[in-house]
Design a protein around this nucleic acid. Structure first.
Lengths: 221, 221
DNA sequence: TAGATTGTTAATCGATTAACAATC
DNA sequence: TAGATTGTTAATCGATTAACAATC
């Protein structure tokens, strides 16, 4: 009997821990590739260098579709390519950044994004002082023009580096104009309609992990 | 018979997912507290606002030691206090920041850290152009003085915002001088001796989650 | 062929969720 | 007392790890 169930995911969701580890391999492999220590690398070697387990490396690589050769290991360049394609980093996505403050400027100046298929095309800000400026070669436009520009350029990714107090409002504007994914650096939870992606970057969460671990460490005798 | 096993953890390790969620509650509760919608709040309400499950909120709160009252809910201010104390955010920790570039400057200017018990006392940089400057009221000192200053001030936390190429070297210097925890924003894995904490902030990991989710979303029909 | 390394199937572990008891 | 909400114990789920088979 055929399965009648029409409502099934076309692609099964990838576990988030795997997605978070892939870039770590990617950065590592690119470095290794430049240093050229042979064409192949074993998962044991990767695991040792990255302080993890060989079996986890194998499992993660399997998810990208990359295949190794028994006795030889994994072909480094193919591994890099497989991760790139799997994450969609082989095609560049254009993004707008909203909020050209300190953090926003830092992101505008970050050269690494082009390796990850992300191109920040322009920035938007509410302050007349900033509008018209260029930050690392990216124009700062008035936030008033945001909806029109998102529509015109078909921008799908918004990077939100505005103050917490305006975050929700700006998110709404972006979503209403066609943005499908928001990378949120504002320290508030923002609400979006179903089907829109929010990736929340919370420094406080990371700091909490560090704080607690340090407290436990210092408390030990 | 008494347990002879001397090597057991004094405090059992807290699951990382819990640690990462606590600041989210914290930020939310502080906002709620200012808006003063009563003295108590139910976990159902928290869960709804934060888009999670009531049972998870209850479990997380239990870990901090905060107690609620059946029928009433949790006392908001006590909840805030409990999280603060649990994470050690009631006492301020002093930190040095190493690498006064774009990102470093953004962190120096971030006002939120004082709410999380973190005080960045000074910055260090290798560039003579930056040394002597003040960024958001924080002095930029020559990196040469880093070991001496860490020792003299008894600094335990280092924030690493230097380029990837110097990250390991700077981490070694910090650890050798007495730093116990490194918050690493450089896009490389750094190695530290056992017993030293590294909290690795990897934008690429977050971007990978966003990229893949967006790709799947856009691929659906 | 023998041996090293990948790939796959099974077991374990831990976090999340559910069910229900306790309590104000 | 009745009912709402917390707190706790049990069940489920998913990710990690282990064991072993496949393969170059």
């Amino acid at each position: 009997m055929l399965k009648q169930n029409a409502v099934r995911p076309v692609v099964k969701a990838i576990p988030e821990p795997v997605l978070r580890r892939l870039p770590v391999y990617y950065q590592y492999l690119r470095k290794i590739n430049l240093e050229q220590s042979g064409e192949y690398i074993s998962c044991a070697r990767i695991a040792e260098d990255l302080n993890t387990l060989a079996i986890q490396v194998r499992k993660d690589m399997a998810i990208t579709g990359a295949a190794g050769k028994p006795k030889l290991g994994y072909p480094i360049r193919e591994l890099i390519k497989a991760i790139e394609i799997f994450l969609g980093w082989n095609n560049t996505s254009e993004a707008y950044l909203v909020g050209a403050g300190n953090l926003g400027s830092a992101l505008l100046g970050y050269q690494g994004f082009k390796d990850y298929g992300l191109n920040i095309v322009a920035a938007f800000d509410a302050s007349p002082d900033k509008v018209g400026e260029e930050i690392y070669g990216k124009k700062v436009l008035p936030v008033k023009k945001l909806p029109e520009m998102i529509r015109r350029m078909g921008i799908k990714i918004g990077i939100l580096t505005a103050p917490a107090s305006c975050a929700q409002e700006l998110a709404d504007i972006m979503v209403n104009s066609g943005v499908k994914a928001i990378w949120n650096f504002a320290p508030v939870k923002i609400s979006v309609p179903e089907g829109i992606i929010v990736q929340h970057e919370n420094l406080a969460s990371s700091l909490a992990v560090l704080s607690k671990r340090l407290a436990l460490l210092l408390a030990e005798r």
